[in-house]
Structure formats: C-alpha cells, structure tokens
Simulated scan of single mutants.
Amino acid sequence: MSAGFAAGFCAIDWARPWLAPIEPRGRRWQAAALAGYADYLAVLNHDAAGAALVSGRGRPLAFIAQDELPTGASYEGHIAATGCVPTRHNLHDFFNGLMWFAYPRIKAALNARQAAQIDALGIGPTRGGVRDALTLFDENAVLFACADASLADALRGFGWRTLFVAERAGWGTRCEARMFGHALLEKLVAPYKACTGHAWIVDVPASYFTLDDAARRALLDEAVAARILAEPLDGRAFAPLPVLGVPGWWDANASPDFYDDTAVFRPGRRAR
C-alpha cells in the first residue's frame, strides 16, 4: 500500500458534521481499507449480507473488485443485472459504498433508471440528459429537507442572506442538509469554501424534525426514491448549495461576513 493511498483514508475527519450519519460504519470500513483490498471487500460484503440490499432490478447486492467487471459491460447495467458493484480501493468508491447503506432505496432507484436508459439507448459517447441528471445526483447531490417553503424559495433564488443569516435559526428545526453524492463527500475530505453540491429539495412535514437520525434517513430514502422513479429528470431539478455555508458545518460561517464572498455565494441569474 502506497503512503499516498494510506494518507487519503487517514485524512477522513469523522468529527465533520456532515459525516455523522455514516461514522460508525465508515470507521470500520476505513480500518479494513487500510488493512488491504481483500479485507476491505470482505467487510463490505459481510455488511451487505446482513442488510438485504438490492440493485435496481432486485438482485442481492455484493461488492466486487473493479477488474471483475466484464469487458464491455456497463457499470450501472452490471449492477442492475447481477447486484455486483465494482469497487475500487479508493475514497471515491468508499463513499459510494457507504451511500448504498445510508440510502439503499435511492441508490437502487438511480440504478434502475440508469439501467433502463442504457437498455433503451445503449452506451454512446454521451449519456444524454436523463443519465446526466442521474449521474449528477449520484455524484454530487445534497438532500435539502425542508418544512418551510420560504426557505426552499430562498435556496432556489440564491437568497443566501435569507437562508444562512436571517433565517439561521431555522436550520435543524425547519430545514437541514444531508450529504448524498459520493464525489462530493470525497472532495470534502479536504474541505474548501467553494465546494458546492447540487441540492435536491425534499418537502417534509414539521414532525420530521422530531425524528431521530435513522428515521429521518428512512423517510428521505423512501420519498426521494419514489420521485426518482416517477419524475422526468434533468439538471434543472437541482439548486446549487455551497455546503460549507450550512450553519454548524464550518466555524468561519458563524460570521455573517462569510457569505459576502460572491465568488462562492453567487447572486445567480435571477438576482443579476
């Protein structure tokens, strides 16, 4: 194992608030990954066997080495048909695997729609609009659970001062952000101010904020999966969210001046 590889896994800071929902499993997987590729896959498959996860076409989920993906097979199509998730020994696929456990219905719904698009259109030089949107969700989505339409409107309208300053007290009681995109999680191992997710707004009842973490994730998992399977999808379904602006996620954002940086908290087309 190279020093650079080990440093990548060792750099995960489990004290980061956005990692709290996946910390217990993540710590075990991290230790296995540092022990070696075989140990890592063994832990993933042990957990998968006990969790009854399935692919987009109902196949029991397992994690295989990347080089076991047959030549010419599509990644998403192979997962859907066999349940076998090709998994590299790196941070990107580490967080991808964790999302299969955190939000199994969403991951299966994304896989089902990707596989259906591949069946219909084949694999070409471009994915097409629907597959692009599905990939964007998978790689970079933030679930924005919201019980107050005015806060959702502020996010859609680039109303950063409203969302993060004037209505700061609403975070945790009327809205919250939950990480989903595994590429975004990988970036946040080394956080930087401009790191931006694609927020998927989920309307939730006020009672959502009385639930514990597991119940909140289960509610989001079911609701978002149903939408992914039922709705037309394109890139316009998302709103940009600079994730280090989320109250409590970054010490510097305690100061309102943090949000004055228009290179990060951009005014957006509507405001311009």
Rank of each mutant, 00 (worst) to 15 (best):
M1C: 05
A15C: 14
R16V: 06
R16Y: 12
P24N: 10
R25S: 08
G26F: 04
R27M: 14
A32T: 00
G36S: 04
L44T: 00
A48M: 10
A51R: 15
L53W: 00
A62N: 09
Q66K: 15
D67W: 06
E68D: 13
L69D: 04
A73W: 10
H78C: 01
G83A: 14
C84T: 11
F94A: 02
F95G: 01
N96R: 12
K107W: 01
A109I: 08
A116I: 06
I118L: 10
I123Q: 11
R127W: 10
D132F: 07
A133G: 02
A145Y: 06
D148P: 10
S150W: 07
L151P: 01
R156Q: 13
F158C: 09
G159A: 01
R161Y: 09
T162P: 02
L163A: 10
V165H: 09
V165E: 06
E176C: 15
R178D: 09
R178L: 10
M179C: 00
F180T: 00
G181K: 05
L185G: 03
A194H: 14
A194E: 14
H198M: 12
A199N: 04
V204C: 01
S207P: 02
F209R: 04
L211F: 07
L211V: 11
R216H: 03
A218G: 00
E222T: 15
E231I: 04
E231V: 06
G235P: 03
R236K: 13
W250E: 13
A252Q: 14
A254P: 03
D257P: 09
V264T: 06
F265I: 02
